[in-house]
Design a protein around this nucleic acid. Structure first.
Length: 731
RNA sequence: GCCCUGGUGGUGGAAUCGGUAGACACGCAGGACUUAAAAUCCUGUGGCCAGUGAUGGCUGUGCGGGUUCAAGUCCCGCCCGGGGUACCA
């Protein structure tokens, strides 16, 4: 092999390779896009049209990692929906490839099918319009219709194809395929329901067993071979996989895996088919026609790509006069006439955004290392990212590419783990709470929401700054917009104008945007922070309803009053805390610590509120309690915590304090209040010593004065005692 | 269509392993303090019914079944909301 041939062969195996491939070209953005950057046929950023175009581009062979990316999901603690999105994107599908000879033609058509067992039901073969064999097999008689269909299909983007999905368009090529097992001739069609980019771009059509094939056969009046027992195929294809086959020669009476295996075996014996696993995941285009991106450390010598020697790295972006493509469509870097050693043309494409986002977290471990990503010691010390908090929108992009790169670096021995992010939580979106006023049709009169049923009204947004607790400030409303200056109002019985509301995304046009700035100004950053935590579980989307923020504000002020009086003088005492206060403290330490560990941040705030309520009631100002309490508070209200920490006489930061440990001796009461149920219905509570065994609890309950009353004179059938939980009497 | 989620008071939510449903907070109602307001504090607050009252009864976690001494929690079948995804052969 000469150098060129060898290079070409290597490109077929390299992790990052140059190849002519169909790419998503976005003319408006002037660059190619990866599959995950295209949604519904338009660019994710900006929504510009995207067309398919053949271009020479760098790609990364992520498809070679499909199986590992799939299996790796079992090892990581991620939300199920993200795992599912990745599984679908990888799109593993088990089946077989089958070869069809073509009558009077040397080539073969390779199809991918998940149902080789239905091989005897093949009625026709369909190629994608872009399939390479189309032009050579088409008969002269069909040439004009085929050419026209191919040309039309090329003009349609994926979105257009889907719009007329029900039509099942397609045309015959005039050519015939030879069935690999029974030698029968079946017609070859082209149709855009077959996608060039998936499988082999060709399918064996079995209308009796596949709904799309059935639809196509119906549309084009193709006879349907019946191959399923008790299924007449006049209404639809047979959707079940467990129906015995008929009219299928050696497969008759079989179904499921048995039939699958036997069919593949027969095909393999003829060398006309084999088991194949197919993935939807495509290799990822790795070059962009942009200036701002990492440059490739690559130059070209006689058309062959070569790496810049490691010792000469890093490669720096050259200066250009404009950050725009050249007049003849070359990437911006081409403006620089950039050359290596003044003679070899450099690669003018740059890397995409995901080149950097795939590994930046590794760099955090050792940011000043100028030899390597991070030292082995640093990587060993820090290990995987323990918790990744982020949005689900990166599921098929960044979150997949990061896993891919980490696997590569792990394989190369550079990183001690194969999965980058051990645990992930998707935070929910904070939604707005819009307010509405109701204008009576064809008038300038607005009716209170509770009375609007009596009128025909039009619902209009009212700026939330004009509304307090759903009550509209009618005077402010009139001043708000000129069109409302003369507005009149129908008030409810209480003389108030009540607004309607809805929970939706925040948006200027909905007048429901509440910026944190106003709240920080009014309540302080600590209150805002605590309130955001208090709203509900982090994973949940939730309304930004600011009504409740007062409650959190009050809590922090109540807490402060344990430490200082109104004049700012310390109330702290050095006398030992009494047992009740220590119980409050240690139960709080335990609950807060447990809740933090299970990411239940909203209940941490509740727990601290309960502690403050209890300590206020106990009039506890003991340093021994207050000191630990302020540490528990510090992740939630860091500024206040720091201030109170200082009030207690500390000279270091609260952030350096040790997290308190709950003392078990204060966690339990001497007595437990047993709920006593009769036939599962809770009737009364009885305080008993916690150390009593089940037998003793049982007799205490049975002799209790109320028990006889609830038994209604009937005998006890059974009594269940769960120590420190419940007693249930069955009668 | 398929996949993943979720559904609990007037509101946000709690109930972690099948064991007292509604913690905590908002809101609301009543009260104290105040010339008044704010702030603060106290009491009550799922629904229905009975009682002057303490209290008692029934009912209740989207709907219908089931398992269990015991179900918001587990199982089966539905309904509705949110998100993802698809001519994937």
């Amino acid at each position: 092999m000469n150098v060129e041939q060898r290079n070409h062969l290597l490109m077929c195996f390299r992790l990052t390779y140059l190849a002519d491939s169909m790419v998503n070209w976005c003319p408006a953005l002037g660059t190619v896009l990866a599959n995950d950057e295209v949604k519904d046929g338009v660019s994710e950023r900006g929504g510009h049209p995207v067309v398919q175009k053949k271009m020479r581009q760098w790609s990364m062979r992520i498809s070679a990692f499909a199986e590992r990316l799939l299996n790796g999901l079992e090892q990581i603690d991620w939300p199920e929906n993200i795992k599912e999105i990745q599984r679908n994107w990888i799109g593993k599908s088990s089946g077989a490839t089958v070869l069809f000879n073509i009558e009077g033609h040397e080539g073969q058509i390779e199809v991918f099918t998940t149902r080789p067992d239905t091989i005897m039901g093949v009625a026709f073969v369909t190629l994608a319009p872009e399939h390479p064999l189309v032009s050579s097999i088409t008969t002269p008689a069909q040439k004009s219709v085929v050419d026209e269909y191919v040309a039309q299909a090329a003009l349609k983007n994926e979105r257009d194809r889907q719009v007329n999905a029900k039509e099942m368009s397609g045309v015959a090529t005039g050519a015939f395929a030879i069935h690999p097992l029974n030698g029968q001739k079946v017609p070859i069609y082209i149709a855009d329901y077959v996608l060039a980019g998936y499988g082999t771009g060709a399918v064996m059509a079995v209308p009796a067993g596949d709904q799309r094939d059935w639809d196509f056969a119906q549309q084009h009046q193709i006879e349907i071979p019946l191959i399923f027992d008790n299924h007449d195929a006049s209404e639809s294809a047979c959707s079940s996989k467990d129906v015995p086959l008929i009219n299928s020669d050696f497969l008759n009476g079989l179904c499921g895996k048995t039939a699958f295996d036997k069919a593949v075996e027969a095909l393999a014996a003829e060398e006309m088919g084999e088991v194949k696993t197919n993935y939807r995941l495509r290799d990822a285009v790795f070059s962009r026609q942009r200036y701002w991106g990492e440059p490739f450390p690559v130059y070209f010598e006689n058309g062959i790509s070569k790496m810049i020697p490691t010792a000469e790295l890093p490669v720096q972006l050259p200066e250009v006069d404009k950050y725009l493509p050249t007049e003849d469509g070359e990437p911006p870097l081409a403006r620089s006439q950039w050359k290596y050693q003044n003679q070899f043309v450099m690669e003018y494409n740059t890397m995409p955004g995901w080149a950097g986002s795939s590994w930046y977290f590794l760099r955090y471990m050792d940011p000043h290392n100028d030899r390597f990503i991070a030292s082995p010691e640093a990587m060993q010390y820090w290990g995987q990212v323990d918790l990744y908090m982020g949005g689900a929108e990166h599921a098929t992009g960044h979150l997949l590419y990061s896993r891919f790169w980490t696997m590569i670096l792990h394989d190369l021995g550079h990183v001690p783990f194969a999965e980058p992010f051990q645990k992930m939580i998707n935070q929910g979106m904070i939604l707005g709470r819009s307010n509405f006023v109701y204008r009576i049709k064809d008038s300038n009169t607005f009716v209170s929401a509770d009375l609007r049923k009596n009128y025909t009204t039009q619902r209009l947004y009212a700026d939330i700054s004009l509304v307090d607790n759903d009550k509209l400030d009618t005077e402010k409303f009139k001043q708000w917009l000129p069109e409302y200056a003369e507005a009149e109002f129908i008030l409810n019985e209480k003389g108030e104008y009540l607004c309607g509301f809805e929970i939706e995304k925040m948006s200027k046009s909905k007048y429901n945007v509440q910026t944190p700035d106003e709240l920080v100004e009014k309540f302080g950053a600590d209150t805002l922070r605590c309130y955001e935590m208090f709203l509900g579980p982090v994973e949940q989307s939730k309304p930004w309803d600011t009504k409740g923020i007062n409650g959190v504000y009050n809590f922090l002020r109540r807490l402060t009053r344990l430490y200082k009086n109104e004049q700012g003088e310390s109330l702290m005492t050095l006398t030992p805390a009494d047992k009740t206060s220590l119980q409050t403290l240690h139960r709080t330490i335990k609950k807060v610590t447990d809740d933090l560990n299970r990411y239940s941040w909203n209940t941490v705030v509740s727990t601290l509120m309960i502690a403050v309520n209890e300590l206020t009631e106990q009039k506890c100002h003991s340093k021994e309690v207050l000191q630990d309490l302020v540490i528990l508070l510090s992740p939630y209200a860091p500024h206040l915590a720091e201030e109170l920490w200082e009030t207690l006489g500390n000279t270091t930061s609260v952030l350096d304090a040790h997290w308190p440990v709950a003392n078990t001796q204060f966690l339990e009461d001497d007595t437990f209040s047993y709920p006593v149920s009769f036939n599962g219905k809770m009737r009364y509570n009885i305080d008993l010593d916690v150390h009593l065994d089940a037998k003793a609890v049982e007799s205490a309950v049975l002799t209790h004065e109320k028990t006889a009353h609830y038994l209604e004179g009937k005998p006890v059938k059974k009594i269940i005692v769960v120590p420190k939980r419940i007693v249930n009497i069955v009668f």
